[in-house]
Each structure stands twice: as C-alpha cells, then as structure tokens.
Design a protein around this nucleic acid. Structure first.
Lengths: 228, 228, 228, 228
DNA sequence: TATGAATGAGGATTCATTCAT
DNA sequence: AATGAATGAATCCTCATTCAT
C-alpha cells in the first residue's frame, strides 16, 4: 500500500478515480464483448470490476455512456496499434504490411475488444454504430492513402485508378481484413502473421495488375485472365 | 366487402396456419434485423405481424425458435439466390460473377434479412451463430470450388495453389463480399452491380496472378509489384 | 366400426356424448391428480382425452365445473366401494373391517382419484373443498354409526361414550385411514390388507378398552396403562 | 412521527435485510397457506410484505426458493414446538402428551403455516414434498421412539411389538394427529387440549392393550372385543 | 358432433437506475 | 470515495376461453 499502484483484480479499496475507471472499462469490455450490449448486465460488470453498482453509475453515468466509453477506448487502441506499426517513411507496401500485421495481432490479443468493435457496436442502434463508423473510416482512409501512395511510388504512365474504384477497393480490403480477423480468432492454428500474409498477397498482387489496366468483364475475354 | 377475399396486408382474420406463419416470419425478420435479438420484443413482432402474441407462441414456440426459424428461412433464401444465378455449365468466372451479382442484389433487396444473417445471428450466442456458420461454410465451399474450377479451366502448367492458400482466399473473398454488401446498402448511389464488379475485378485479377506464381514478400522485391 | 362401442384410447370419432364425457373425466382425473388443479392445463386434458379443447368446453363448460365433476365422480366411486364391502347385517366389527379393506383397496387402485380427493380438492379454495367435505362427512358418519352399533351389540352396562368423544374418535379414525392410504401407496411392499389390519387392530382394541372406561389422564395413574 | 423509529407493521423503509426477509416470509406463509403454491402470486406476496417485487427476488431468488424457505421455516418451528414441550426425562406417556398438546397448539396458532406444511407442500411436486417428508419422518421417529420407550418402561414380559407394527402405528398416529389438527382448526369450539386428549386416550389405551397381546382378527372372536 | 384459429389477461422474472448514508 | 437498500418498467411466456365453420 505504500508506493506503486495496485494492479490486478485485488480487492483494494479507495483508489484514485482514474484507476477505478479503467478497471470498470476492463470489466465492461469483457462483458460487453462476450454477452453483447443488451445481454450484458450492469450487475455483472460491477461485480467483475470489483465495485458496487452505484460507483459505476457515479463514474460512467449510464449503460449507454459506459458502452460508448468502451467503444472509444477500444477503437483508439486499435487505430493506435495499426498506426504504430507503419513507419511513415517506408514504402507503401511495407506500411500496408506492417499495418495488417499489427491489426491481426491486436485483434488476436484483444478478442473481447475486437468483438465489441466489430460485432456488438455495429449491431446495436445508432448511438454506437456511428462511433465505430468513425474508426472504420479512419482505417479505410489509411488504406486509401496507401493505395494512392503506391501509385505515386510506381510513377507509372498508366491512368490513375478512378477514385471510386479506390474507395471500393479499400472497403473490400478492410472488410476482408475484418473477416479474416474473425477467422483467425476462431480457427485453431491460424496465426496473425499468416492471415496478414494471405491478405497482403491477394491485395497487393491484384492491386498491381489493376493498375496495369487489366480488368475482368462480363462475357470476358476468351481465355480469360486465368489463361497462361 | 361483398364477395371476394381480402388480399394484401389488410387486417384479414382467420387465415390458414401456413400463411400466418409466413406473416410472422416476415415481421420477425424486420424487427430482429433492425433491433437485434435481445432488443426485439415479441410484443412488437406480434403487432407488426398483425396477430396476438399467443398466436406467435402457438405457432413458433419461443423467441429462440422464432429467431432460429427466421435465420433458417433467410439463409436458405440467400443461398438459393446465389445458386440460382450460376448456370452449372458456364465457365468459372461467369459463375462467380453471376453469384456475386445475385448476392449483392439479394442483400440489397432484403436488408433486414441480411442484417439478421450477417449481424444479429452471429452476435448472439451459440444456438444461432452455428446456424449461420453452416450457411457461411456453404458459401465458402462454393467459392473454393470456383477457384479450383478456374484453375482447372486454365489447365496451366504452374503448380496448384496450396489448399491452405485457397482456404484463406475464399475466406477473404467472402468476407470482402459481406463487407461490401454492408457498404453498398449504407452508401447512397452504390448499386449491387458496381459492388459486384469491384470485387470481381479485384478478386479475379489477383487470383490469376497468384496462380502465375507472383507473390508479395516481406522485404519485397525492390520497386515492388506495382512497378511497370 | 360396425357394432360395439369403441373403448380404450383409440381415435374413434363421433361417439355418443356419455362415452366422450367419461373419456374426458378419465383424462381429467389423471391430469388433476398428478399436476394439481392449477398446474393442470385444459390443453393437456383435452389431448389426453383425445378430443379438441372446444369439445371439452362444450360438454363441461369450464375448468371449475370439470374439476367439480371429477371430484363428484371420484367421491361417489369411493363411497360406493366402501359401502359395497359392508354387509348391512354383519356385526359392526366385520363391517368396519370390510369397509377399511375396501377403502385401502380402492385408493390403491385409483391413486389419481385418491390424489384428487385427498390432496388436490382440499387444497384449492372453497368451491372444491366443500365437495369433499360432504364425502368425508359421509365417511365419518359411517364410522360413527359403526362405533355406536358396536356399543349396542355389546349391550354393556357401562355408560355410553359421550357423543363428542365419538365424534373425535371417528375423525381420528378417518384421518388415520387417510394417512395410512398415502403411506401404503407410497411405501413399496405395504399392501392394502396390511394397512387395514394395522388400523383395525389399533382402532378396535382401543375402542373396546375405552368403552370399558379406561382413560389416560395427565399425571397418569402410576404404572400407567402399559404396566403388566 | 417526530423522533423515534417506527415499529410494528407500518410502512417503514430501509430496514436491514434480515428483518425484511422475515417480513417476506411472513407474507409468503400467509399467501401460500391460503391460496396454494400455484395460485399464490409473487405480486400479492410482495404487496402483503410491503415491498416491491424485485426486492423479494433479490432476497429470495425465485418463487420456488421462496416456497422452500417458507416450508423450512415452518417445519423447523413446528418440530421445535413439539420438542420443546417434552421434557427428556419424563415418562413416555407424559412426553407424548406434551408433544401432542404442543402440536395441536402450534397448528391452531399458525393455521397458515400448518396449511403450507400439511396441504400445499405435499400437493405440489417433488422439490417441496421431499422437504416435508423429512419433517414428517422426524415426527414419526419421535413417536416411534416414545412407543418403544413406553414398552421399556413397562418392562413387561410380553413379546415386543414387531417393528413393522410399530411403523404402521406411528404412521397411523401421526396421520390421526394431522387429521385432528385440521378438524380442530375447522370446528368451532374444539380446543387443542381436547383434540390432544381425544387422541391420547385413543392411542395410549389401544397401545397398552396391543402390547398385552390383544388383537382383532378377521372372523373375530364371537362377541367381538367390545363385549364385556 | 366436432375443430382449427384466435385472444385477453395475468404471472414469473430481470434490469437499469436511484436514494440515503 | 463508496455502498446496502429499494423500485418502475419491461419482457417472455402460459392459460382459460371463445368464434366461425
């Protein structure tokens, strides 16, 4: 009780607000992530946090605000993780690779937080979905940026990819990443690195060819793009 | 109101069980899709269905069974739609294209059903998630099959894609499709066809190159794959 | 389907009212006896009776009336059984013995009916308890009569048992019989005859001595009645 | 309303859990005893207890547990009352007499509790019946013990009563007592003491004679046991 | 004679939230 | 800084009962 903050789930009483708040958010992430917003009960959250219910209300006001706080904290953590991986001066492909690795690693290490962001928050009405949308747009913007950077680095003579195409591609990439994160979390023996590699290969190679002007078209060129 | 049965959404009483059941499922898809499993109330479902609550219980037994019935009906409908698009004898790329188009069309036309399948069912515990997993695996299998078929049709001399790669790719593709479906649903002015095209381009081109042996590797070939 | 009434649980349609009614009462005895009045559902009764619910209402009007009808039928059956055993001209002890035997036999053979009379009917409010009270009073009266008859037959010179005493004794006897019926029903290997013998021994012997003027008194005669 | 805490059944708020719990149990005994398990509503119990329904659930968890708690409390109270009356060193007849008096007094003073134990608990399925069976067996054991003690005290030379006989007798006695308790409760002007005396006379005298070897037998000794 | 379709009313249980200390 | 005591408002589900045929 002298110097040093208590950490862990001990039954320490009378600790500073900031610490208590984090304990509550930790508990909330866990419960919300596992049970979902509606099924999570303030009772259980308070119990897991090791405090009384009124204290949760004193600090976080309501279930809705608590959930929002959780979403924000987790979103910030994920975005930070992804950003932290990418050195600003590295080439675009290296940055994408680093970002993907960080993404899969973070989601694998924080399954409850990932569940809150990817499943729960988007599943329950407007106050929350918006919160995640903001984060997702940051992600999409990040990827869009990298695609553009890649194009610049290639200083190719081919026409730019239309910005609408870029938007769709970024969406698809982020969606694929999200889906793979779930898959990696659920599938025994699929590591974050493998998931990242799978996606990177797929994305980068396809992206390159697209830039070279190849397209698939209904009716297709005979022999198709698969032909040798 | 003389002769002739009322048809349409009117307040007709006393209709055969099968009909009433579909009305209930329609209402349930809507409410579950918009509110989520927990937040949806049997009261509201009954009201929207235009019947009393006891009748809902008489026919569908419990909230859980009702939700399961909804999931099954919607899953079946989606799978059928996707399958219906693809002529069995067409080349693999045409079949994938048709499947994607059907997928985006169906999800766009049945946003509530899509929400139930993609968001709600997977968000709430084991009885339901499993139900969707079955469907999703059907989808992944379908895509995996097409990738393999594409390879065969190309009768190229290059080595087969490793089956692990194929698994990851199929996952990524399905995930990207799911994500794009949400995006198309939420974004004004993005049609199902465009979404399908974006993904098809991305997927098919990348796939072709992958089969040709191109890979992205950490550390990368200088100049990257984007270079001309 | 030709001549002869269908009996048993078959699915015969269109049978005379009297028969259908008995089927319903049979089902009702069973369900009421096992579940209790409140827990028994008209649904289950109708199902066990092999008819639709509206028919039960058509014939028996309401749950309350149905239960009353059941009580009456079972009460009548039990009283008849007890009376049937006792030849009017036999000596009092023989008649009591015969009555007891019949009682224990009937309750053993109709556990559901006995449950309805002894447990369920008396447990649920006034309309029903009264119904059983009538029957019980008949029983008590029967026993009272026998005690009196026994006294007459003994044409002893000792003073009559006070009528209040007789009342209490009859109550005690009937109560003991009821209790033993439950015990015999619940205890593996205790036959109706044994139960009857136990009670008869106990009752008749005690009765005899009481008539002879022996009494137990607080403070007791030293050595007590047990002394040799 | 000035200084001083309100005591009694007033609408005092905020009292310690233990107190509130007893109030709830008091209310529950009353409602369960009068209406029966199924017909009793948690709403009414809460109202009679002077609290809100959620508080009842907070403290007693469910209707089932509440009923069980009630049964246990009442059973314990009855057994204690019966035991308290009997001085361990007194002769067997005095102990039986004291026990009977206490029994009839307690049941007369707690008709709702007695109803719960004797009627309601035994009428509704297994979780509850078992609870009472335990208590009843304690009673039977108590009586059995006294019969045996009586035999010892008499140190007579006659053969012991067979243990099976003793079992049946104890059952009959307890059953008779239960039945008389109902009768005394229902009949204006029958006091606990009178009920006890009636039974004591009947039981003790009969018991004595039985020990002396008298028996009633089918076919009987001519003239019967009633004869002088 | 017989039933498929339908409901009003009520009951157990849970939950987010607030007082009073 | 922290909590034991307490509740209004839903929510799921069941049941006795009735129409219309």
């Amino acid at each position: 009780m002298g110097a040093g903050a208590a950490s862990g789930a001990g039954k320490a009483k009378r600790m500073p607000r900031a610490v208590r708040e984090q304990q509550m958010l930790d508990a909330a992430v866990r419960i919300f992530g596992r049970r979902g917003y509606r099924a999570a009960s303030m009772d259980e959250i308070a119990e897991v946090a090791g405090v009384s219910k009124p204290l949760v209300y004193l600090y976080l006001n309501s279930k809705e605000e608590l959930f929002t706080a959780v979403i924000r904290r987790e979103a910030r953590a994920l975005v930070s993780a992804v950003r932290a991986g990418a050195e600003p001066k590295a080439p675009a492909d290296a940055r994408l690779w680093a970002g993907l690795r960080a993404f899969f690693l973070h989601t694998a290490e924080n399954p409850d937080g990932w569940s809150v962001l990817h499943r729960q928050a988007r599943t329950h009405g407007e106050p929350f979905a918006a919160e995640v949308t903001v984060m997702r747009e940051e992600m999409v913007a990040f990827v869009t940026l990298l695609i553009a950077a890649a194009a610049r680095e290639a200083h190719s003579s081919e026409p730019e990819l239309a910005s609408r195409d870029v938007g769709g591609l970024a969406q698809a990439l982020v969606g694929a990443a999200e889906s793979l994160a779930d898959w990696a979390n659920a599938t025994e023996g699929v590591s974050a690195k493998e998931a990242a590699a799978t996606l990177m290969n797929f994305a980068w190679v396809g992206l390159g060819k697209l830039r070279e002007g190849e397209r698939w078209m209904p009716g297709g060129m005979p022999g198709g793009m698969l032909g040798g």
